[in-house]
Design a protein around this nucleic acid. Structure first.
Length: 287
DNA sequence: CTTCTTGTTACTGA
DNA sequence: ATCAGTAACAAGAA
């Protein structure tokens, strides 16, 4: 699912393409994708606006527009943003494998047309993803409700420990998934971080030793960086902006590997339900 | 047919 | 006040 590394991959790719472009037209095939107003108002307000930046906060992609306006995009579980450039097709050659040549398809909920004839397709099988048009003040309110970004400088080991210690009775998995505490982790990277730190996800925070918190802190950062380097994880629906899969799937140690041998100790990977989510761990490596 | 999948919010009950 | 669990959103795969 799109978590921090997947959305960050898209942000970096789209930041090379969108800034400077004006939105020339918008097609909405599933009007409920717009959560901030009616779809008609959304279209009217957006058409003609210029994109000046592409940002990310937690799992939310932010298209910064002129006039203090922003389009927030949440992919939820099955959302995709596929960028289609007209120019690269002119001049021959083959479009990228898995590109936008078969779009729109039955899961395309929206298309954003740009003033140079490039297009951005929003596909979402499950229809949970959304667009919201918000001003800069509202952005600040959204920002305040989210925990620190794990890859930013202000995410120090001390701040991480403080955030966790204030929730002594909660389980580790629940805390890692809580966007108000730490931004951007989802089910895949919560499980992978716990494995890397050799800590069971069902542990209560109050039981964690300082040394364990330090290893967990470092594990989260390392895993997220490596996942971004691989272009994210495509378990199922996630795609990069050119339609290709992210490559981190092959580096997963526990997520999706229930019943298979642990890659470190060869004991069987277990799967339980924790914080309402499928939770994977090695019963020997993790304590 | 049932069960499972998950990001997020709302709700319930301990 | 805190926390865990579940339903809802929605649609498809197994």
């Amino acid at each position: 699912m799109p978590e921090l590394p997947e959305v960050e991959t898209l942000r970096r790719e789209l930041a090379d393409r969108l800034p400077g472009r004006k939105i020339s037209q918008i097609s909405l095939f599933w009007p409920k994708v717009v959560r901030s107003s009616s779809s008609a108002t959304f279209r009217r307000k957006l058409i003609g606006q210029k994109i000046i930046g592409v940002h990310r906060r937690a799992k939310i992609l932010i298209l910064e527009l002129d006039k203090q306006q922003n389009v927030l995009i949440h992919l939820k579980m099955t959302g995709q943003l596929i960028f289609s450039s007209q120019k690269e097709l002119i001049g021959g050659g083959h479009p990228p494998v898995g590109g936008a040549d078969n779009l729109p398809n039955k899961f395309t909920r929206a298309i954003i047309f740009l003033d140079n004839d490039d297009r951005l397709f929003f596909n979402d099988l499950r229809k949970f993803g959304w667009f919201r048009l918000v001003d800069n003040q509202k952005i600040r309110e959204v920002d305040e409700q989210l925990g620190p970004e794990p890859l930013e400088k202000n995410f120090t080991k001390q701040r991480f420990a403080e955030i966790l210690r204030r929730r002594p009775k909660r389980t580790l998995k629940a805390v890692l998934l809580d966007q108000k505490l730490i931004a951007g982790l989802g089910n895949i990277y919560a499980d992978e971080s716990c494995f890397a730190a050799q800590i069971l996800p069902g542990r209560r925070i109050e039981s964690l030793k300082n040394k364990e918190l330090t290893i967990l802190y470092q594990s989260i950062i390392t895993i997220l960086r490596r996942a971004i380097r691989a272009g994210g994880t495509s378990t199922r629906d996630y795609r990069r902006s050119n339609g290709q899969k992210g490559n981190f799937l092959t580096q997963l140690q526990v997520y999706g590997r229930a019943g298979q041998a642990c890659l470190i100790c060869e004991k069987t990977i277990h799967k339980i339900k924790l914080a309402g989510r499928g939770t994977h761990f090695c019963p020997r490596c993790q304590k």
